[in-house]
């Protein structure tokens, strides 16, 4: 039982990270109907920018708490901004010229951007994994059984709380602000939105920037949680986050979060109870099963076929 609770905590933590990345996929898919294949690599770039900023600031586990928190917020802000610029640039250069063109073209450019980013980071930062000593360590022991101690680390609390805060913030943004309204209008009918005076280009750019910024936060959390990153983390995290977005129902923000949590939990539990080698198979099989029986995802709107 204790073991189960421990895995639940670990799964929720991982799921939060996936969920944050998934938001970027789901928003972009919702608004322009394309799989932004490079999004996972923006997450990776975000993790690298975070790593570099952490080192520039010289933050270590021994930095005093107040200073450390302040510095980490600054790190998050910087990597959000830089990743945002990456997101903006990618959209501007690789996707916008192809908007309204052949449907598969932006998918191929997205794959091209993904390959480019991976190899760009590999070429500039080296292929070796980057370890980072734990900055936020320690935690609570919440349950003490005879055989197994359930611990929740400060880092895990931070991840889940931060994810929750960001999620609430963005749900508010999408449902209540003019930007959110513009986004939803573009989602429904881009031409009509344009006719009504909505700046479609800016709206789409903003969507990419927001998605990239959230992915950067996810990258920072990944870095702090696992303490090791490399140029290849974007690929598998990206696929799983996209899986999460589809699982939750593409276009739905709470769906992306829920999907992320489900994928995180499946991965952790499968690794804990069955086999860690096949945990990816479990996550992807889950995706296939859900799509067959619930093609619109967990929280997506069902689509009625128009004849």
């Amino acid at each position: 039982m204790n073991y189960f609770i421990q895995q639940l905590i670990n799964g929720l933590t991982l799921g939060s990270i996936y969920g944050l990345i998934a938001i970027g996929y789901t928003m972009v898919y919702g608004i322009i109907g394309m799989i932004n294949f490079a999004h996972g690599d923006v997450f990776m770039v975000g993790a690298f920018v975070s790593l570099i900023t952490v080192i520039v600031f010289g933050i270590t586990g021994t930095t005093s708490i107040a200073l450390g928190i302040g510095a980490l917020i600054l790190v998050a802000a910087i990597s959000m901004i830089i990743a945002g610029i990456y997101g903006w640039t990618i959209e501007r250069l690789a996707y916008r010229p192809l908007r309204g063109s052949f449907r598969l073209a932006p998918l191929i450019t997205a794959i091209g951007v993904s390959i480019f980013l991976q190899n760009f980071v590999q070429a500039t930062q080296g292929a070796r994994v980057k370890p980072l000593n734990a900055i936020i360590s320690g935690g609570f022991t919440i349950l003490e059984g005879n055989d197994f101690v359930v611990r929740i680390t400060y880092m895990q609390i931070l991840i889940v709380v931060l994810t929750f805060l960001l999620m609430s913030g963005f749900t508010y943004l999408i449902s209540k602000t003019p930007l959110g309204r513009a986004q939803r209008a573009c989602e429904q009918d881009m031409k009509m939105a344009m006719l009504l005076g909505i700046d479609v280009n800016t709206t789409i750019s903003t969507t990419f920037v927001i998605g990239a910024a959230l992915a950067a936060v996810a990258g920072l959390m990944y870095l702090l949680y696992y303490g090791v990153i490399d140029f290849y983390i974007g690929f598998s995290a990206g696929i799983k986050a996209f899986t999460a977005a589809v699982l939750g129902g593409v276009g739905s923000l709470p769906g992306a979060m829920l999907g992320g949590l489900v994928i995180g939990l499946i991965e952790v539990f499968f690794a804990a109870y069955f086999s860690s080698e096949y945990k990816d198979v479990a996550a992807f099989s889950m995706l296939i099963v859900v799509l067959i029986f619930m093609p619109q995802g967990l929280l997506g709107r069902p689509e009625i076929e128009k004849v």
Binding site: L93, P97, G112, S114, F116, N119, A123
Partner: peptide, 16 residues
């Protein structure tokens, strides 16, 4: 490494 980097870039440019 640069080879794949340019490969990705070429993919983008050719599609554009």
């Amino acid at each position: 490494q640069l080879r794949l980097l340019l490969f990705g870039l070429a993919m983008v440019l050719m599609m554009l």
